[in-house]
Every structure is written in C-alpha cells, then in structure tokens.
Design a protein around this nucleic acid. Structure first.
Length: 350
DNA sequence: CTGCAGCAAGCTCATACCGA
DNA sequence: TCGGTATGAGCTTGCTGCAG
C-alpha cells in the first residue's frame, strides 16, 4: 500500500507552499480548525470514512424504499467536508450539519457541551433521569416518539401551572431523545435522557411520566423502568445526554455478557427508520430555563491568498493534496476500522 | 353555586435543525 | 457558513370537568 500519509511535519509549515496558486484568492468563513498538534483531525478523518460509507448505504435504502425526499440530505452529508482548504496551519471547510453526519454531530456535540456546561455546573445536586416507553417495531416508532414528546409537553405544562399557582416546584433540566435498536428482537427503544438540578425534580418527573402513560389509555399503554441517579461526573453525563439521537453502532446484545467477540454493527435500515421517525423533532432541548444571553457571535470571514486544496479519499482515509499527493492528517485506516466497514454495516435488519 | 386543576390556544421570542 | 423553518419557551386568557 502506498504511503500517502504521516507527513504531519510539513503541516507546521505555514501556507506558502510552492504548489499554491498565488494569484488565486479564496474567501472562507469561520475561524478555521487548527491542523498542527490537533489530534481531533485524525478522529475527523475516521468519522468521515464511516460517515461516507454509512450515507451511501442510507442512500441505497432510501432509494429502495422509494423515499426520494431523504436522498438529498444523505448526499449532502456524503459530500460534507469532502474538499477542505488549508492556509497558515488552519483548515477551512463547509459543514452539512445534518444529524446523520458523524463529523458534524461530533462538532455540534462539543458546541452544546460547551454551551450548557457552565449552567449545569451550578446544579450541585444534579440528577440523571431516564424515561422510557415500551419497545416497539419500526412501523410504530414515529407514533411512539411523537407520543413521548406529547407526554413530556403535557407534564411540563402541568407542572408549570402548578408552579405558577405555587402548588408545585419548578420543572427544569435538559433532555435528549435517544433510540436504540435491538437487532435480536428487531425492536426500537426510544427514551429520554434528562439532567435535572435536584432529586425532587427527578422524582416528580418520574412520577408524572408514569401517571401520564397510565392515564393516557386511549393512545398508548403504560411503561415502567424509569431510572434516576445522582450525577457524579457532569462531563460524562452531559456527553451521555448529547450522544445525538441514535448510537450509530449497535452492540449485538447489551444484556448478555461474554458476547464481545461479535463486533458492533451499523444497522443502516434501522438507522434510516430512526432518522425518519425523528425528523423535525428536537432531539436535544432544555426545558424550564434559558441560557444566559451571549454576545451575538459575529460572523468571521477569512481571505486566503495562499491556500492549498485537499480532497477526501476514502481509499486513503485522508484528505489528499492533488498536487503533492500528501495526506493532510496522516490518518491510516486501522485494521479494525477496515474490518468494521467491510463486515459490520448491515443493510438488511430493520 | 364557587374554586381549583388541567388542557388548549394565541401571542412573541429563542433556538435546534436543515438546505444551500 | 448563513438564512429559513419548525419547534418549543414563556406568558396570558379562557374553557371544562369535578369536588365541595
């Protein structure tokens, strides 16, 4: 295999490559990403490979289902970050920001964590709550998810009213919807992950949730198995909450141990079902409070007169400079990732 | 009857998501 | 990135059903 990679040393050299066209000028937006000494970049290359392969599979599935409206978004994500520009040790590109883009999700995740961490950090008695409903099949997933949002909405209104009338405590926290796929039973398990400021709110939420599903006989049946525990490691729990929607990789059987020989798998059809059911829904949201107003983030543009252009190559799992053939990050696809891509993308199960 | 709890709708504003 | 859009926050008003 040809070695296009591991030229990280050259990346430290800023901008003035002899391969750059000095007459050309390029306007890019944003502040750019540091290239030098940034381990996140190789991770980004890895995500990009997975994302590209996954979205091709998603496109096939959308086609086979005749759901053409979904194809465009998947293509957008396929092309996300395909071409990048570098200048003065910075990398610039445009991002698709789609939910099913592993690259953009990772960025969004980091942004959300940075935004919410200062507020949640003041909740000294924070609790982590999981609210679930019964597992369901693909056909009913949308209905269940819609029902969950509805149930939460009703609970929130109810508690807000009680609080206004001074007969209840204020309900607040951050919540996110997640959905796992169980490849053995072929069922989906949508659930809310929630962080609230204290135990009282956690208990209230659990009680109201149970009440909601019990009394709502006409729509759905009731569900138990709600959990809550104290937040010991805010960082960890925030990440848990903001995993973004559905885990891309599904472990074969979470319950049974000793099954670790079976690698994690991407169930693409299931993923497409989950994405469809969640479309238009806010997966992550706060409730009962607002973030402090931040100074309006100004848009920055950068004029690059000396830049290099790189295109992502799946074969090399890296962005390749067409002129020089060198790789941007030096990321070489490890054998596990190669194995994963070749064997662990499942387009059948749903 | 009155008082209360819960639900809904109408409004404005904030913001997560998404297409280009 | 940027702007558009949909969703939800946060507020108010008003209706309905129920218990006393």
């Amino acid at each position: 295999m040809k070695d296009y990679s591991t030229r990280l040393d050259t990346l430290a050299q800023s901008g003035t490559s002899k391969f750059t066209n000095p007459s050309a000028e390029l306007v890019v937006s944003g502040n750019g990403t540091d290239i030098v000494g940034n381990p996140a970049l190789t991770k980004r290359a890895k995500r990009k490979v997975i994302s590209q392969r996954m979205n091709l599979a998603l496109i096939d599935i959308a086609k086979s289902k005749g759901r053409n409206e979904r194809i465009k978004g998947y293509w957008n994500t396929y092309h996300c970050l395909k071409t990048v520009f570098t200048s003065n040790g910075k990398m610039y590109s445009s991002y698709c920001k789609n939910r099913f883009c592993t690259v953009c999700c990772a960025i969004r995740k980091a942004e959300i964590i940075n935004k919410y961490h200062p507020v949640l950090n003041t909740w000294n008695e924070a609790y982590f709550v999981t609210l679930t409903v019964k597992s369901c099949n693909a056909k009913n997933l949308y209905k269940w998810i819609t029902g969950m949002f509805r149930a939460f909405e009703l609970i929130h209104w109810r508690c807000k009213k009680r609080y206004q009338r001074s007969t209840g405590i204020k309900l607040m926290g951050v919540k996110s919807l997640e959905c796992n796929f169980n490849p053995i039973n072929k069922t989906y398990n949508p659930h809310f992950h929630i962080i609230v400021p204290n135990e009282a709110i956690a208990n209230l939420l659990k009680a109201e949730w149970l009440k909601q599903w019990k009394s709502d006989k006409t729509l759905f049946t009731s569900a138990k198995a709600q959990h809550s525990r104290k937040v010991e490691d805010l960082e960890h729990d925030l990440i848990e909450i903001i995993k973004y929607g559905s885990k891309i990789f599904t472990e074969p059987d979470l319950k049974k141990k000793g099954n670790s020989s079976i690698p994690p798998t991407i169930y693409v059809k299931a993923l497409d079902n989950i994405l469809t059911a969640m479309k238009g829904k806010r997966i992550f949201d706060r409730f009962g409070f607002n973030l402090p107003k931040e100074s309006a983030s100004k848009t920055t543009f950068t004029w690059l007169s000396n830049y290099e252009k790189w295109s992502f190559s799946e074969k090399h799992t890296d962005w390749i400079n067409k002129a020089t053939g060198e790789g941007l990050t030096g990321y070489k696809k490890p054998s596990e990732l190669a194995f994963l891509l070749n064997n662990c993308i499942n387009s059948d199960l749903q």
